[in-house]
Structures are given as C-alpha cells and as structure tokens.
Design a protein around this nucleic acid. Structure first.
Lengths: 243, 243
DNA sequence: TGTACATCAGTGAACGCGCGTTCACTGATGTAC
DNA sequence: TGTACATCAGTGAACGCGCGTTCACTGATGTAC
C-alpha cells in the first residue's frame, strides 16, 4: 500500500482534484446529487447486511428508480463498491487528521489517532469491515484506493519526527529496507528501527479494533474501552513516543 | 469468548466426547464418511470463493448428489457453516498445541505459537477469514464454537506461569477485573498485569496475521516473514517472557 | 437363521425468490449558430 | 433571442442465472422376534 503512495503523491491524486474551471450546469449538479444519494443508500444497505448483500436492484428500488438507471452512474456493481471503499478510507482519514490536529505533542497525537480510528470504526462498523475485514471474494481493489488508504499511515508517520532515535536497534532481514522505504513516504529522516516499531504499532492498532468489532473480545476484554486505552499507552511506549 | 470457557470446561465439551460404546454399524460409518466428504467439498468452495459463496447446491452437484440429499446431513446451510467454523478452530488449535509442545521454555513456546498461528493462516486463508475475518452477516455463531475458539488462548495462558510477575503495574478501570477473570480460566495464579499484557499480545498476533492475509501490508512490510519475526520478539518482551 | 417391520439415505420435481446486466425507447436538458 | 441538433437521464421489458428449502416417493440397511 505505502510504496504506491509515492506515485500517488507525485501526480496530485492525494489532493481533492475537483478541477473544472466552469461553473456546474444544472445537469451536473443533479448528477452529483443523485450520485450522492445512490452511495448513501448503498451505505445504508451495507449497514444492514454487509458488502455482499449490497444489491443494485435494492438500491434502485429504495430510491424509486428502475435498476437499469443506476448504470448511468456506475458502470457496474463493483464500481459502486469501489466508490464506497474510497469514501470510507477518506472518511476515516479525515476523522483521524482532524483529531490529531487538535492536540499538541507526539504522544497526545498518538492517543488522538488511536481513539479517532476506534471511534470511527465503532460508528461505522460495516464500512470498517469493508476496508479492513476479509476481502470481498472476486473483488480486486483498483489503484484509486491506494492514496485514501494511506492517510492514517501518513498521520502516524508525522508523529515520528518527535521520537528520539536512541541507540541503533538491530532489525532482522528485510525489515531494514522495508522500513526505509516506508520512512521515505511518511516519515522522512526517521530512523528505520523507529519506523519498524511504528509499523508494529500500526498493525496492532487495527488488530485491536478489528478484534473488538468482530466480536473476538466478547467474554474477555469487553467492554474494551479501558483495555484499549491501556494498549494505546503500551504501543506509545513501544514506539518510543516522549511525554 | 473466554469467560464462557469456564462452563465449557466444566461439562466436558472441551474433550472429544465421541462416546458411543457400541461398535458403529455400516450405515453409521457411511454416514460419517459422507459427512466428511460434504465438509471437505464445502471447504474447497470456501477456498474458491469465501463464506458467502458456499452453496449447498454446488456442494451436492460436486458430490454427484441431489441438493435435497444434503438435508439428511445438515439441517440448513448455516449448520454446515457452523461445522466448518468449529473444524477450523479445532484445526488451528491442534496445530498450535502441537507446535508449542515440541519446544521447551516460555519464550520458545511463544515463538512456536505465533509461527504456528501464522503458518496455519497462510495455509488456510479462507478458513482463517471464516473465523477471524468480518462476521458473516445474518449468521450468529452458536455456543458450540466457544470451546474450540478458546484453544489458542489456552495455549498462550499456559506460557504465563514462567513469567516473573515483577513489580505491580497499575491497570486502568475494568482491565484488572477482566484480566482476573481471564487468568482464572487460562492462567491460574498469574498476575493480572501479566495477563493484561498477554491479552494485548494476543490481539496483536492476530492483528498482524489478518493484516498480512487481507493484503494491508502489500507495499510496506511485504513479504512479511522478517517483520513478523521482529514483532514476535517485541511481543515477547512486552509480555515479559524470559529467555 | 428367517421373516416382518421400522428406520433412514437419496431422488426428482417444484415453489418462490432475487440478482446483474443489456437494449431499444422516450423525453428532458444543454449547446451552437 | 430563437431554433435545430446533440447529449444524456431514466424507463420497462427481457435474458439467463443460481439459490435454499419442502415434499411425497423409492429402495436399501438395520432390528426384533
């Protein structure tokens, strides 16, 4: 995911890119509006039954349209799914960026990041499952999803400039070079062992949220609020965040 | 999951419970055989297309039976799914137990446990997704799955008796009591802060495996072998495993 | 050991359902002169 | 400003598909006497 960000950053796909110098015509506004309504209704069905329950016919029915009309907006069911995936990554990314921007200091930023991710996931469980759950069989995510998927890693990377590198830590095998590649994209100048530890924390953060959301914690660390808070501090220590 | 283990341990559901004092008749043997064939074919379809692609008609077709015949073996599609879930938990549990039994020492045991879980997951990705991926919408796992699901946690718990408790570590809010409940089931006598850290490592282990399997590491820590090995050591340190 | 009856595996047809996608069409909105 | 043509949104019917589950049935296997 991350290495592909390099290209995406370069050609401006990370920025909104709405473009269009002309003012939108009525038709264009209507089209944008209906596109939004289709996605909203599709999201509602996602909440009700998960990704594979998403049905173009049902969406059309709910909107009072005929099913074939949707093909004016999305060439196929998979394209609608892709749009939802991109929206989900962007929504999570924006929520995280906003939360982190509100606080000062790397450790506070890490806490804000973790709680933003968890909060968003609990508020949008099916959208979370769509992007971090088991892959939808037969669906291949296109390149367009790469940049939005990188927003949370970019936020985490931005916290690493405050981490004192400390003494060099030996890293096994490919980990050094992989960490360097990641560092170039999200945390230029950070020591590879710091980046490697941050990557572990990154997987752990989402592992935890997934475990809670997918019901694996029921009967042990449930409710998970305090357990999550505890883990966030452990991860901060692991990364070496000051504060 | 874990707290329910208490009951399950009590009534013997954790042990095989094949029972039946009489020798099996030819009919019984045939029935067991065909039940096995149905599950094997269903697993094959799982590999091909994921849980929601599992179709009774397709399974029957492949076995040269008529679809209604399957109802002699499983009262519904959901019951077949449940059987596959239980088999998956048991297969993962057995693989982990075997791997850990082969080594001596808690840290070596932890390493063996982690690599067994990852190895099994890579070898059986769809079965892994079935039990640790996003829940199948509309499917509610019955109590029968609880005991098999507890086998890996039990293995992890067995490693904790070798962990020196060290100075008491403050735990926030509910974490103390939750850790004590878990300790009673899988690690009697272990200090709550040790158990709490082990629970974090447990979520992290599966978080990592899920990230790798579900494609989130592509472009950063991929191939993940070395990264995984590095993380395993970090987790061992977190738990406080000697060695 | 042989017979009469009960149990159970598997058949084949049917019910009723929803799905994604295509296609020729009508009618409204936009554009160029 | 007015007209002629191009673009595009939405319709309605149809294609072809696969699914889970039920039900009355045939015929083989097991059991009790």
């Amino acid at each position: 995911v991350l290495s592909l960000l390099i290209g995406a950053l370069g050609d401006g796909r990370l920025i909104g890119m709405t473009a269009g110098t002309k003012a939108p015509t009525a038709r264009e506004r209507a089209r944008a509006q209906i596109t939004r309504e289709i996605k909203d209704e599709a999201r509602r069905q996602l909440v009700a039954g998960g990704a594979q329950q998403l049905s173009l016919r049902a969406v059309a029915r709910e909107l009072g349209m005929v099913s074939s009309a949707l093909y004016r907006y999305f060439p196929s069911r998979d394209d609608l799914l892709t749009a939802l995936i991109i929206d989900a990554y962007d929504s999570l990314g924006a929520a995280t960026e906003t939360a982190v921007a509100k606080v000062r200091g790397a450790r506070a930023g890490w806490r804000a990041c973790c709680h933003a991710v968890r909060g968003w996931a609990l508020a949008h469980p099916q959208e979370y499952a769509l992007i971090y759950g088991s892959p939808v069989p037969g669906y291949q995510a296109p390149q367009t999803t790469v940049a939005p998927a990188g927003r949370v890693p970019v936020v985490i990377g931005s916290l690493l400039s405050d981490v004192p590198p400390g003494p060099p830590q030996p890293l096994p095998g490919l980990v050094t070079s992989q960490s360097q590649v990641v560092a170039e994209v999200i945390a230029p100048g950070a020591a590879p062992w710091v980046v490697a530890r941050a990557m572990i924390a990154w997987t752990q953060l989402f592992g935890m949220v997934s475990f809670e959301l997918f019901g694996q914690l029921v009967g042990s660390a449930d409710p998970a609020d305090d357990f999550f808070g505890f883990a966030v501090e452990q991860m901060a220590d692991l990364i070496g965040l000051p504060g």
